[in-house]
Design a protein around this nucleic acid. Structure first.
Lengths: 279, 279
DNA sequence: ACACCTGTTGCACTAAGCGATACAGAAATG
DNA sequence: CATTTCTGTATCGCTTAGTGCAACAGGTGT
């Protein structure tokens, strides 16, 4: 099944809008009309959920008549809905099923995979991705490397305490009320390095929130260290955390600094790939 | 702003796929290429999250070469991603921002509004829509009618107990564990008709779950009755509940039966509009 | 009354998208 | 191991289908 398709270009991110009618993104194998229509559609987001015809035409630099046909087509297909009261277009029902799929764990994992691979490759350590679901943190993807010392955290592993970089990071970024809720749980001392003092933990979370990076220095398991950075969604909410895990032997000050830079950079790249636009 | 656009067709649901290449859904103002592309895109959903080129071509009855160009275009625009390992296409990152928007309260409200209006018109009573958020039920849309007796439940009103049709319905459809969690809350007797006996409540919920309709016979407020029916999303999960509210004078056996039929029918229509496909 | 917004059409030109056909590599067939 | 049959990819004329222009219609504001 892989066939010669395996030789397919795995696009990085070149894609920069070329103003004039041309849509020849990278191949000549693009159908212009579809391309233009999709560009119109892609303008809709939480920050700008409704558009008038002229707005669309103006910002896409397409002819008004052309844009009109696009919107009518998308309307006919249920991708857009025209609101006669306001004269604006909104997303239509056809996008609901797609949105349910897009927000699936599996889809996030798929989209994130290449970035995890890159992270693992560049850092030389295991890369992980975790999401929060109802107050717990679940490892949903992991990419190992050549010198993986041990399988660290298995996929599907549920993290309920704060002895790991993923949970620390996510909890640190929450509003005070929710953070307090987490802190009300009894801390578990998994290793002798685990933080148990409430004050100490709070200080650590403050540091994490400020720096935007969380560390796990053998707090979850002896000899195991990690760094985690946040992945944001289109509306700026935290949708996942990614980390690099390694043995303490390869987590000295210098290596730790390098790992931190790697994780942070990839987290930003992934966030942007997923539609996050920093303010 | 409303202008002549106000005279725009408010489509009902005619849209039936016309097999042959033609995409002339209802106007001549459709761009065929875009239309076809969207139809390809719309095939992706939770039940069938990945498609191969030939699958797409086959089920859309488009030429393989055409489909190829479509997928390549959508890939270039980030709407699809080709996985070289499996040889299948998946949804791409461009859909993430859209999906975040599509799952907004505001968008649901927009899409549901016409249905609520229809429900209010046909039943002659006030129509409401509520969603659940973290264990409570919030009224997010309401359409009044000529003989609205009083403003019933205001928009934004939070319902925490089971003395209303929305909460009853939603709780009744939950798995036993979650239902039990709700039942552990102390019941509040808002009126003399409120159910307070645990056994009685359970029996009522069982009935609701079986019939797929919940009633509120003056349990929340004296003289106020209502019927609620469930709205399902693409993956079959409950995403909202809609209801009809009226004074007890207009809620005799016959009227109640008619109202029930109205609510149920509109609930089904809205569910299907939102992508729910009944098994 | 005007100018200036909207969204909506009709029409003629031509490039853009189409389908047939062919090809390469992988996998399943025997 | 040859055969068949999948898969995705590429080429190339034909003609249709999509485009841009320019005009139109109804609303708003001044």
């Amino acid at each position: 099944m892989a066939e010669n398709a395996a030789s397919r270009r795995r696009r990085t991110k070149d894609a920069e809008v070329d103003d004039l009618g041309g849509c020849a993104a990278d191949d000549q194998f693009v159908v212009r009309a579809l391309c233009r229509g999709l560009r119109v559609l892609a303008l809709f987001n939480v920050d700008h959920p409704e558009w008038s015809l002229n707005e669309l035409a103006r910002t896409t630099k397409l002819h008004k008549a052309t844009t009109y046909r696009m919107t009518r087509t998308m309307e006919a297909e249920g991708f857009l809905v025209f609101d006669p009261d306001t004269g604006n277009y909104h997303l239509g029902p056809a996008l609901i099923p797609l949105s349910y799929l897009a927000q699936t764990q599996a889809e996030l994992e798929r989209l994130a995979k290449p970035f995890l691979e890159k992270l693992a490759r560049e850092s030389g350590e295991t890369a992980n991705l975790a999401i929060e679901v109802e107050g717990t943190f679940i490892m949903i993807a992991s990419v190992l490397t050549a010198h993986t010392f041990k399988p660290s955290l298995p996929i599907g592993r549920v993290l309920t305490d704060l002895n790991n970089a993923h949970a620390k990071l996510a909890v640190a970024m929450k509003p005070p009320a929710e953070r307090a809720q987490f802190l009300s749980r009894q801390p578990v001392a998994e290793t002798k390095y685990s933080l148990v003092d409430r004050k100490q933990i709070e200080a650590e979370l403050d540091r994490v929130a400020q720096e935007g990076v969380a560390y796990d220095m053998e707090e979850h398991g002896l000899g195991v260290c990690s760094v985690a950075a946040p992945v944001f969604g289109p509306n700026g909410t935290l949708i996942a955390t990614i980390s690099v895990v390694g043995p303490k032997e390869r987590f000295g000050p210098d290596e730790r600094k390098r790992a931190t830079e790697h994780v942070k950079r990839i987290a930003v790249e992934l966030s942007e790939y997923l539609g996050y636009r920093p303010v």
